[in-house]
Design a protein around this nucleic acid. Structure first.
Lengths: 326, 326
DNA sequence: CCCACACCTGGGAGCGCTACCAGCACAATC
DNA sequence: GATTGTGCTGGTAGCGCTCCCAGGTGTGGG
């Protein structure tokens, strides 16, 4: 196994099979004509020699890339140290393996979209997976990668996009709260520049307006820390609030923590809901909406690898998970 | 930004700078001689043209690879869907980005080490990060990659290796339990083929023997499910047990869950400890040992990228985190 | 009989880059 | 003045692969 001999090249395979390099290439790359006999002899020889095509050479001549770039927009590089992104990257790497492609991650500062152009303007980049970016970032994607870009959580139709049904998920949550008799429902939102956050907020507003209930919003940022301070803010501004919708599980957990610390009973006095269904949610009995992150990431990666022609947006459902917090 | 024009090549840079391709290459690859004047003009031209070296061409001629392979040993491909591995892969991808290298992950069946040889016998693989493998897998690493392999959690000296001080961590935990007056301490172990698991178990045994206490081991597999059944098994075999050491947080959480369901008070009747300090641990007040997973992964990746010459083993400390479960 | 038209093959160019080698200028030494 | 460096330079040969193109061979139709 630990062969010291030089790696077998296409030339070696061709010679062993008694055909030309061209024919061997045609057989192994599955392009163009080749007689069944030639086909078999080449495959045989390749097997025998343990031939593995040289990805660099292939990429060079084809003008193709050797890796996928997962780009994450955000205000600080801290977005990279996040369990959601960990799952996306790891899943992408799994999906890419059979294609012989690697994966890299990079943070794109929200106010410097040019950074993305710089990163993507590299022939080695075979495709792009944009995570939580703004539509503005899409403009900066080099033309070369237009067919090889997918986004997660942006809901754009300009680029094949995989999305969570944030609107539907939030609606389900708000309806559940309403059905449980809650009438003064507040929300800790996410950053407005994020489409997925906006969709949640809009669903919340829409439903409340429709029901003739007051809208009570406090700006958040997905974090638990902001959840804590937001909880205080909500009860300070609207003391009769009887439910708080968190934009994420982390936020909701922060809210619950603060409420309990302040002697507010959850869910008796105030019901609290999250979004995502992280492992912590089941332990803390958080009512939330669940999303198949791994499947979402795999779908996005597959889109760029297979160069799907059409499907503008694939929407993954958000399923309500009822637990004790609401 | 969205330049449609052909990508600038070294040739273009050289022409623009008024030097030969060789000189431009020497300047940009920082190898060999080049006059300050030439240096500046080439750098200038490269900047102006937005030159990005073609990784495939470079890799081809240098015989170098284009990606790192993270290989994980285990009994089923399920090992890939694990938050620990997610962190390792994601961190590796971050570290690799500036080097222009991608990352792939693969599962290597424990009983088919040859699979690793097959995966690694690809010129595109620039380096190897072995996660939770056995020493046997090391033999299968192609000679070409001998200087470009690092392992995590195996503690071998045959290969540069990054490790958690499992022994030290477990010792600290057992000592803490002893100091708290526990004398009948059981352990739910991990698979014996895993070095890091063995180190923990050995530390546990050593300390107990030293103190003249009985050793009470039940075989586990890191999972919460096994933690549950193991809890019952322990109390069935040794009803007077007053502490259970879990090989991981997940196991410990399973143990606690089962104990409480069976009416056993934690920690009053039985103290329980974990290992890893996953986010859940702080919420569930689990006493455990904490490890810097991201730093460990980064260290391993850096080892293979920088081809460190010597340091056989880097040991990361395990720090005791005291919470309420023990 | 020749031609058209399939199918199949090998030769060769060249992707973009680095490494090697010769060659130049200029300074220092004998 | 001849010799030996020392710094720097450009030409050129590939790395391993794919693709284009010219040139086969065989089959069927005019």
């Amino acid at each position: 196994m630990t062969t010291a001999r030089r790696h077998a090249t296409l030339e070696d395979v061709a010679r062993a099979a008694g055909v030309s390099r061209s024919t061997a290439s045609r057989v192994l790359a599955e392009s163009g004509f080749a007689s069944p006999i030639a086909r078999e002899r080449v495959r045989d020889a390749a097997d025998r020699l343990g031939y593995v095509p040289n990805a660099a050479a292939r990429a060079l001549v084809r003008g193709a890339g050797v890796r996928l770039l997962v780009a994450v927009a955000g205000t600080s590089p801290g977005v990279l140290d996040d369990s959601y992104l960990d799952q996306v990257v790891s899943t992408t790497a799994q999906v890419c393996a059979p294609y012989g492609l690697g994966v890299t991650v990079a943070w794109v500062p929200l106010d410097q979209p040019g950074q993305l152009a710089r990163l993507a303007d590299d022939r080695a980049v075979a495709g792009l997976v944009l995570v939580n970016t703004t539509e503005a970032l899409l403009d900066v994607v080099p033309r070369r990668l237009h067919g090889r870009t997918a986004s997660i959580g942006i809901g754009s139709t300009a680029v094949p996009s995989v999305d969570i049904d944030n609107g539907g998920g939030t609606s389900a949550i708000v309806r559940h709260l309403y059905a449980a008799g809650r009438r003064r429902i507040a929300m800790v939102t996410g950053p407005a520049w994020l489409a997925c956050s906006r969709r949640s907020v809009e669903a919340y507003r829409g439903l409340l307006r429709e029901a003739g209930l007051p809208v009570r919003e406090v700006a958040g940022d997905f974090s638990a820390a902001r959840g804590r301070s937001a909880a205080r803010e909500v009860l300070h501004r609207w003391p009769d609030t009887d439910a708080i919708v968190g934009i994420s599980d982390a936020t909701a957990l922060g809210v619950i923590d603060q409420l309990r610390a302040d002697g507010v009973r959850v869910p008796a006095d105030v019901a609290v809901t999250g979004f995502d269904d992280i492992p912590l949610a089941s332990v803390t009995a958080l009512t939330t909406a669940s999303h198949p992150v791994r499947r979402i990431a795999a779908a996005a990666a597959t889109m760029v690898l297979e160069q799907r022609p059409a499907p503008p947006t694939t929407m993954f459902p958000s399923s309500l998970v009822l637990r004790e917090s609401a």
